[in-house]
Each structure stands twice: as C-alpha cells, then as structure tokens.
Computed example of a mutant assay.
Amino acid sequence: MPISLTKAGRTARYTFSGTSGQWVSLGLTSVTISSSTITLLKPDGTSLVSTTVGTSGGGFEPPSTLPATGTYTIVVDPAGVNTGNITLKLMSYLSGTLNLNGAATVSTISVIGQNARYTFTGTAGQWVSLGLTAVTITSSTVTLWKPDDTQLTATSVGSLDPPTALPTTGTYTVTVNPAANYTGNMTLTLSTEVTGTVTVNAAATPVTISRAGQNARYTFAGTASQQATVRITGNTLGNVLVNLYTPSGSWQTGTTSSAASFNLSMVTLATTGTYTITLNPQTTATGSLNLQVTSP
C-alpha cells in the first residue's frame, strides 16, 4: 500500500481485520519521510506496538500474536513537518514445522518486514536446542515460545538453548525476525540432547555431537564426601562449555575451553545421588570428545 503524505502535519490511518492468535508483520519500504512513527492500535483503540522509522525502512511486528479478534489500525505519523512517501505491506508470518532430530528446515525470507514461524511438539522435561547455520540474514532474533505463547528464550546468533527443560507438553513455536530491512536465509536444526551415563574411575566415554547446535547431558552416581574431577580429552568441538550440577540441580563447577584436553576443578561432592554433566559447544560445530570422571 503506497502512501503519500505531502502536507506537513498530516497523518495516515489504515485498518485491517485481525484474528486472536494471529502472527502478523508489516514491511516499510520506499520511505522518503525523514522520520515518522508507526503505531499499531488494537481494536479497543489502545496501542499494541510502536516504532520510529527513517528512510532506510524496515520491518515492524507486534511482540507476540494479536491479542483479540477485530479491526486493527495502523497509524503513520511523520515527525515535525516531515512529508514524503512510504509503502506498507501487511503480511502473515511464513509458517512450517521443525523436525525434532530429523531433517533441518531452511527458512527463506525474501521480503522486507517478513518474519517466519515454525512449530514442533515438545514434551515436558525434554531438553532441546536449535542450531542456526548457513545464515545470510545480517541480523535477526530467533525466539522460542511456549504453548501458551509466552517467551521461553531468544538469541541472535549460533544456537538457541533454553535455560531449562521444556516446561509443558504441547506445541512450541520458533519465530525468526530479521532486524531493520534485512532479508536472507537461515537453516534451523532442532535436536534433543545426546545423553548417557558415566561411571567414576571407568574408562573415558566417547561423546559425539553430530547435529548443529546440539548439546549433551551425562550423569554419574556420586557419594557424599567423594572427591571428583571431570576430565575432557580428544576435544574436536572447539570452544565448549562444560558444567557439573548437583543432584538438586545446583551448579557446582564448570569451565569453557577450546583445548584438546582440559579438566574441571576437583570438587568434593556434598550429597549422595545422581550428578549431571552438561556439554554445550559454543559454536554450531560438530565433532566429538571423551568424557571421564575420576576420584583420587
């Protein structure tokens, strides 16, 4: 929708019918107005979201789905005495599914202001991560939404790692929102963690990360007052974050290293129970390492 505002002080208002739960975005292109405020009003006339745009244009989207069914209004208000033109393009999000532990999904965003959303079925207690590779979008935000449409976590680079296991069973949504007027491609790889167990003072266990953005989680049985050291050898993953957690889930020790071999600080285990070691590559590289827990 091309808009021409040739008189100082004039604004423009355009309406559209929206549905509760709908994801929409607005492309702002061919902008010759030096500065203007774009506001999206809800059906009750209150502001849902607002932004300032210059001649570079860009994208504009609500922070979440539309909250109600009804008539929404887009207001274009040039700053001061500015005049000029702007083209508005209202779009639904591109949509698709993510294949948990399956084939990667390629997201192609070719229109300024276009966003994308992808869904997958998650289970309460499940640990997942999302690798972001082959990215040609200069800057974007990737967000994971819970089944109730509240945000779980977000990132702009590398991989998306929720801070906890999935809290509920249901349909999760991943949105891709390019910044400014950027377009391009991104490959999304959704994976569960590599899991297993190790035994204190047993031979090292090989751990292989074969999917972009994938993490690993291993457990071992520990005894109160036992001293333990987590050892990494043969690391081909590059920079990797290794953490040790107590049976209650509290962090005990950890480090980030790209060395081929390194150890966590030796700790004295406070309680008897199942301890957890997490291994999180800090890039989307794949590879392997050997994991061992020793007690002197």
Rank of each mutant, 00 (worst) to 15 (best):
Y182Q: 12
L40D: 03
R211D: 01
G125E: 05
G273N: 01
Q226Y: 09
A228D: 03
R217S: 07
A202E: 02
S225N: 13
G196P: 02
S64V: 06
S261R: 01
A216N: 09
T51A: 14
S95C: 04
L188E: 02
D148Y: 12
Q151C: 01
G18S: 06
T286L: 07
L98T: 06
A104P: 06
T272M: 11
Q226K: 14
S140W: 10
T286Q: 10
G21H: 03
V31P: 08
T253Q: 13
T97I: 11
I109C: 01
T253S: 15
I232W: 00
T6Y: 12
T155G: 05
S56W: 11
T119D: 07
G96D: 11
N99C: 08
T175E: 05
Q22M: 03
A79M: 09
L152F: 12
L279M: 13
T173G: 02
T256R: 07
L190Q: 01
V75P: 07
L279K: 08
L269K: 13
P162G: 09
V76R: 12
A180W: 09
W145F: 12
T173P: 00
T46G: 10
N215G: 10
T39H: 09
T192K: 05
I137E: 09
Q292D: 05
T283D: 09
S50A: 15
V230K: 02
L88K: 06
D149V: 11
T246H: 14
S210R: 08
A116S: 10
L166C: 10
P2C: 12
G273Y: 02
R211W: 04
G84S: 13
T119W: 01
L244E: 02
G184L: 04
